[in-house]
């Protein structure tokens, strides 16, 4: 089936929407016109660049290049998790906890899918590996950022209760158990919502894209189901690991709650 290729003119027509919206913002004095234009320009440039990168990568499908691409994506996601938190851990922990958890969960989940489910040749074929990793990583990143942000907020507001539990002789795990549970739950809510609404309220982007590109709907649906499950697994385990590590870091070797390990 032939895909209708988009010309720059087609994109320019869509860009009129952004300009119109900026005009509205100016007229209603919403004050977001500059942000709107900058972010639209950013996404255009970033996506064009990634298009070129993927083109080169697909032409040179070797494991080191795929791995380099994956490592870059992980580092950017790690930074994103860090800056999204209002009170993040001080020092290397701020970047390390989120990045390590994403590495553990997203990479394992994506590898699992590549080796056991998709079984492409070679297994690291970038057409499969990079988009899958990107989707899992992007969602895991959200879950981890939400979970860690909630954990920091919880321990800050419940500090006195946690310390009372410690004073009664409970160990750190018991003292922070409620806050930790809450934080993991918050990280999981978006993917649970996405799964319940999928197909009824929303047609997920990946599936829509495949259908637009000419894939038979049933095949696109199968891929979407696979991706949903991978995302759920990556997000859930990633958030559990990240919140667990962060919770541990909030106590010292004498099991004292150390809020000074969080940024103001």
């Amino acid at each position: 089936m032939n895909v209708v290729a988009l010309t720059p003119w087609d994109l320019a027509v869509a860009a009129l929407l952004i300009l119109a919206l900026a005009g509205l913002s100016l007229r209603m004095r919403l004050g977001v016109e500059k942000q709107l234009l900058v972010s639209a320009a950013r996404s255009t440039i970033q996506l064009l660049l990634i298009g070129l990168v993927l083109k080169v990568l697909f032409a040179n499908a070797s494991l080191p290049w795929v791995a380099l691409m994956a490592a870059t994506m992980l580092a950017v996601a790690g930074r994103e998790v860090m800056v999204r938190q209002k009170r993040r851990l001080r020092g290397a922990w701020g970047f390390g906890v989120g990045t390590l958890s994403m590495f553990v969960s997203s990479f394992v989940v994506t590898l699992l899918a590549l080796l056991l489910v998709i079984d492409a040749t070679p297994w690291y074929a970038p057409q499969y590996a990079i988009p899958l990793l990107g989707m899992v990583l992007g969602n895991t990143m959200n879950g981890i950022a939400l979970g860690m942000d909630r954990l920091a907020q919880e321990v800050t507001t419940r500090r006195a209760a946690i310390e009372t539990r410690l004073a009664l002789g409970q160990d750190w795990r018991q003292a922070i158990a409620d806050s930790r549970r809450d934080a993991i739950r918050v990280g999981l809510i978006p993917i649970i919502n996405a799964m319940s609404a999928a197909g009824i309220v929303s047609l997920p982007g990946m599936m829509t894209g495949q259908i637009l590109a000419g894939t038979p709907p049933v095949e696109a649906v199968n891929y979407q189901i696979l991706v949903m499950f991978l995302i759920a697994g990556g997000t859930g385990f990633g958030t559990a690991v990240a919140v667990g590590l962060a919770a541990r870091r909030l106590f010292d070797d004498r099991q004292r709650l150390r809020l000074d390990r969080l940024h103001g």
Binding site: L166, G169, Q170
Partner: peptide, 23 residues
């Protein structure tokens, strides 16, 4: 104190804070 696990120490030497906390 430093030779005892912290929870064991706090269970033996127990602090009751001025503001009571409930969870």
């Amino acid at each position: 104190c430093s030779a005892m696990p912290a929870p064991e120490w706090r269970a033996a030497v127990m602090l009751v804070m001025a503001e009571s906390q409930w969870w």
